[in-house]
Amino acid sequence: MNTGVVVLAEPRVSLCGSAALLLDAEGPMTLPTQERIWRLGDRVRDWEGVVDAQPGMNSLLIVLDPLEADPQALSARLLDVWPTIEAGRIRGRLLEVGVVYGGEGGQDLPDVAAYHRCTPQEIVALHAAPEYVVFAPSVSPGFGYLFGLDPRLFTPRRKVPVMRPVGGGVSIGGGQSNLGKPYVEGGPTMNPTGWHVIGCAPRLPAPFDLAKDPPNLLSLGDRIRFRVDRIEA
């Protein structure tokens, strides 16, 4: 099995079809690099031919107008501009989230402990220690992708997705940790995932509410701290 993620020596821009570019930053995933990605995202939105920009983990997706944009010229421009973008500390607000680790809502905790040859308690201690930063929007409106997982908790994603309950799941996938949205009345109760669900946050505010402006509870740069409410066998 693999042990890590590719770390590029140089930044790279690749085509993502005919109407999008993906800039992968050089080096490991760090907060200063990600701050530069957010700033680059804000910058490129004004460029001609660019219709949207979306930070990923150590990357930036730039969505183009398929008729107007010149992807090759924009690639070159991105690589020119990227080194000039400076990091800038955005110290966002902090959300504390109470988590019940293990048990029914965190059924993969024993497997993750076994994979790392340690006890569930040690996994929980490592997982709840850092402050996580919202690095990038996730697959749909929610809490976003979080940065801050202790590299010792790197756990490869599953080869075959499994069904896990929807609603505040705290999970690990590769070198990332994730906080799932709360269950929505009438929505699906189970969800396929390749991530390992080690806990559950039973009382979560809605991460996305269209009645508010902006609708997202957390913005890029905001922080999440997981509080250990309980560890279940």
């Binding site: 693999n2 993502c16 079809g17 109407a19 930070p55 997706l61 080869k159 075959v160 590769g174 990332q176």
Partner: peptide
């Protein structure tokens, strides 16, 4: 050739992803 973990990144309609299966 050599499976490595990917970091989460933005994708667009039309992307052909290949999961481990």
């Amino acid at each position: 050739l050599e499976p490595v973990e990917m970091r989460s990144h933005g994708i667009v309609p039309g992307v052909i992803q290949v999961p481990p299966s």
